[in-house]
Design a protein around this nucleic acid. Structure first.
Length: 570
DNA sequence: GCCGTTTTCGGCCCGACTGTTTTCAGTCG
């Protein structure tokens, strides 16, 4: 698991995108996309597999396996390099604009020579697209709106991307450092990350800084000094490395973890106590003497506070709660006893039922739900027969795993009126039903609220899946009266999901805190479409922590018996 | 390019929505 798989998946995704721009047959493009997803979600490290091992990956055949071998030897894929030479990277970037796909991107490039988002953003108001076939006034508006949406996400990256960079750097630098960890918004588990902060201790920072700027992922050195060095990675992400003496570790970690607002609150407390808090330690103002600095726990303790979990450090009431001794005992990854939302290759997952269950068992979970898509997501071609056959297979497979209880479920589609796929009798055959919005995302607030409320009130619906349906940086959350939705969930004991996929993290933390006030319960689910996706649960847990959730708030930390009783409304 | 209870060739996620059109192409989920 880890970086090489992500890198290879990214290469094949790029290859697929470029082929679709050049007009390659759709089935071929899809074959590469499917392989990319399967590789990204595969549990074993593709950089260490031979031809035979590679071919065991779903959707990887002879040709793609050989391209991976090429990557192992050369660090790239020759066929990809060839097509890169024909289509500039900026043309592919155009297809990231919502409503602008490969066909339009190619027209813009071939007819007008446009090969970057910035160029396009200038060309439209300048009237350069006028008369271009297929580009009317409405299309221009949609493109400008799409560019605006992308720019609002700014230069921030998804948390898993930042985490991958941070872990790679920490692994490389740790042998040269006393301690080396990530701080900043990444440590606070924010959903997107603007820059990565790495903190290290060393008596002599020189070798550490030298090694840092020599890392293969470094594209540019922005600043280089004794205590701090900043670089930009090949993907444009800024990383700051700060080196402090070992005795300053705790104060520095506290300082660089932030947030700024939280630090202001803690420094105010220090000032009132005649102390001064900086990244070098907590000092007596009068004498200038160092009080403490070695660990975060000591710093907080000397301020009269218990240690505050990084996910809470947003000046969202955590300081007052700490003073009163009312901080929640936050849910941890290790508290999870199972997962209530996953897919197999019966619908859009890339791993077989057997492989998904084996991976779930390897996690040591007590229970695991398989919840493939229901028929109304037409592209997945689900039928009653296929679903019932899967149920038989699940039951049969359960015999092989005496310590793991398999639950057979489904992910239902909430249609525009709030109805779900199957009648009540059929739903009653499932152990767990997740219901989610997968279409018609732009209904107005009143209609959307009624729609979701109706779904969560439906008998046999247990979990409201990825409630806002947002895709971070790509699709806005749906508009609903969330207080009304959460009140309905509490009334009907419908669990509210925190989908752990890094581009969803849905429900978001601010809405989690609102839902909590209504007394709803939550599930932290992987929504795994491949065995490797269980690793995303860490981000779901981080989001739950930012929402102040305790294990008691999260149903999949409960023993199976309690969970099932809750789902059944007992 | 991948895959097989349609099995080594011939299929491959299928329907809705939108905008630009005069009957459909492109995009999305």
């Amino acid at each position: 698991m880890g970086r090489p798989n992500d890198e290879v998946a990214e290469l094949f995704q790029e290859f697929a995108d470029l082929l679709s721009i050049t007009g390659e047959a759709a089935y071929k493009v899809r074959a590469y996309e499917k392989a990319a997803r399967a590789i990204g979600g595969y549990s074993e490290d593709v950089s260490k597999l031979d031809l035979k091992g590679l071919r065991k990956i779903p959707n990887v055949g002879e040709a793609i396996a050989k391209k991976i071998l090429d990557y192992q030897e050369t660090g790239t894929i020759r066929q990809l390099e060839a097509v890169r030479a024909k289509i500039p990277a900026g043309v592919r970037a155009l297809t990231a604009i919502p409503t602008l796909g490969p066909k339009k991107a190619l027209v813009l490039y071939e007819e007008l020579g446009i090969s970057s988002v910035d160029e396009l953003a200038e060309a439209i108001p300048a009237g350069r697209l006028e008369g271009l076939k297929g580009f009317g006034a409405k299309t221009e508006d949609n493109i400008l709106h799409g560019i605006e949406l992308m720019r609002r996400a700014g230069d921030r990256v998804l948390v898993d991307v930042a985490m991958g960079v941070a872990e790679e750097i920490i692994e490389a630098l740790s042998p040269l450092a006393g301690r080396c960890e990530y701080a900043g918004s990444l440590r606070r588990c924010r959903e997107t990350i603007g820059d990565v902060d790495i903190l290290a201790t060393a008596d002599e920072p020189g070798p550490l800084m030298a090694a840092f700027v020599e890392l293969p992922l470094v594209a540019e050195v922005i600043a280089r000094g004794e205590k701090k060095t900043s670089i930009r990675t090949v993907k444009g992400l800024q990383v700051d490395l700060r080196v402090v003496p070992a005795e300053s570790w705790g104060a520095a970690l506290q300082y660089f973890t932030g947030s700024k607002a939280h630090n202001i609150r803690t420094r105010e407390i220090a000032v009132r106590a005649g102390l001064k808090l900086s990244e070098y330690g907590l000092f007596e103002v009068e004498s200038g003497d160092l009080v403490v600095s070695a660990t975060e726990e000591e710093v907080y303790e000397r301020l009269g506070l218990p240690w505050v979990a990084p996910a809470l450090r947003e000046d969202g009431g955590e300081v007052d709660a700490a003073i009163k001794g009312e901080l929640p005992r936050l849910v941890q990854l290790g508290d999870l006893r199972g997962d209530l939302h996953s897919h197999t290759d019966l619908t859009d997952g890339t791993a077989s039922l057997e492989d998904m269950v084996a991976a779930a068992a390897a996690h040591g979970w007590e229970y695991f739900a398989i919840t493939d898509h229901a028929p109304n997501l037409f592209m997945q071609r689900m039928t009653d027969e296929k679903m019932l056959a899967q149920r038989e297979a699940v039951h049969a497979l359960g015999e092989r795993y005496p310590d793991l209880t398999l639950l057979h479920g489904t992910e239902l589609n909430i249609d525009p009126d709030g109805e779900v796929d199957w009648p009540r009798e059929f739903l009653s055959g499932f152990d767990v039903c997740v219901a989610s919005v997968h279409s018609q995302f732009t209904q107005d607030r009143e209609v959307m609220t009624r729609r979701i409320v109706r779904a969560v009130e439906t008998p046999g619906v247990h979990v409201l899946g990825h409630p806002t349906a947002r895709l971070i940086g790509r699709r806005a959350p749906v508009d609903a009266d969330w207080d009304e939705v959460f009140a309905a969930c509490a009334r009907h004991r419908t669990v509210v999901e925190i989908d752990a996929f890094p581009d969803r993290l849905d429900l978001p933390a601010d809405l989690i805190r609102r839902a909590l006030r209504h007394g709803v319960k939550f599930s932290i689910d992987s929504d795994a479409h491949a065995t490797g996706h269980f690793a995303n649960l860490r981000y779901g847990v981080g989001t739950a922590q930012r929402g102040w959730l305790t294990p008691d708030d999260v149903v999949n930390t409960w023993p199976l018996k309690r969970l099932l009783a809750y789902l059944r409304g007992e």
